[in-house]
C-alpha cells in the first residue's frame, strides 16, 4: 500500500529549501498544503512595499502580468520539486499559456491552487488558478523542465556523448555544435 505524503504549512524559509527563486524574484509566501506529484495550494500577499508597484504604474499601482504568472508558477513548482530527488533543483520554462482577468492592487492576497497533470523524465505539465477574495483573477498552463534531470534522458548523438545546445555559451557553444556536426 502506498502512503500519500502531504506537506502542510510551509513557511517562507521552507519554501526556499525546495526552490531556488530568491528575493527580489520570490513570489510565493506560504504553502498551505502540497501533495507531491499531485497538487499544491498557497498564497502570495501583495504590498505596496514591493519594487514593481512604484513603476507599474505611478498613478495606478497594480500587479504586472508577469508577476502573476511567476506567482502561479512558483506554487506549481511545489507540486513536483517536492518529489523525492527533486528538492532544491533549478527549473526552466518550456511553455506557458496565461490568462489575466482582474486587476490586482496592493493589499490584495492572491490564493493559488496548482495541479500537476504529468511528471516524466524531468518534465512537468500542469496548471494553476489564482483567486482574489474568491474571485477568479488569473490562470496558466505550464510545461516546465528540470534541466539537470532532463539531460540524463537525452539520446546520445553520433559524436559520442550527446551534445547539449546551450545558447548562453555563445561562440564556444556554436563551435562545439559545429564540431559535433562535422564529426557526425
Amino acid at each position: 500500500m502506498e502512503e500519500t505524503v502531504v506537506l502542510k504549512d510551509l513557511d517562507a524559509y521552507k519554501i526556499q529549501e525546495y526552490q531556488q527563486n530568491r528575493y527580489p524574484l520570490l513570489f510565493v509566501d506560504h504553502i498551505a498544503e502540497a501533495i507531491p506529484g499531485k497538487m499544491a495550494r498557497g498564497h502570495k500577499n501583495f504590498s505596496y512595499n514591493e519594487w514593481f508597484f512604484p513603476a507599474h504604474f505611478q498613478d495606478e499601482p497594480n500587479v504586472p502580468g508577469f508577476v502573476q504568472m511567476e506567482a502561479l508558477t512558483q506554487v506549481f513548482l511545489m507540486t513536483f520539486l517536492t518529489l523525492p530527488g527533486n528538492k532544491g533543483r533549478k527549473t526552466a520554462f518550456v511553455k506557458v499559456e496565461s490568462e489575466f482577468k482582474r486587476k490586482i492592487i496592493p493589499g490584495d492576497r492572491l490564493d493559488i491552487e496548482a495541479d500537476l497533470e504529468s511528471y516524466r523524465r524531468g518534465l512537468a505539465k500542469g496548471s494553476a488558478v489564482g483567486k482574489v477574495n474568491g474571485e477568479f483573477a488569473c490562470q496558466a498552463k505550464f510545461v516546465i523542465a528540470i534541466p539537470d534531470i532532463m539531460r540524463k534522458y537525452r539520446p546520445a548523438s553520433g559524436a559520442g556523448g550527446g551534445v547539449i545546445l546551450n545558447f548562453h555559451n555563445g561562440l564556444a557553444g556554436q563551435r562545439k555544435l559545429n564540431n559535433a556536426l562535422r564529426a557526425s
Binding site: 527580489p24 513570489f27 509566501d29 512595499n49 514591493e50 496592493p106 492576497r109
Partner: peptide, 26 residues
C-alpha cells in the same frame, strides 16, 4: 511606505487598515 490600505479613517479621531507582508520586501 509601510501601509497598504486604510479601511476606515475618521479625520482627527482614528484610522484603521492593514499592511500585507510578503517575501518580496527588502
Amino acid at each position: 511606505l509601510l501601509i497598504d490600505y486604510v479601511t476606515e479613517v475618521i479625520p482627527g479621531v482614528s484610522a484603521k487598515g492593514y499592511k500585507n507582508l510578503t517575501n518580496n520586501e527588502w
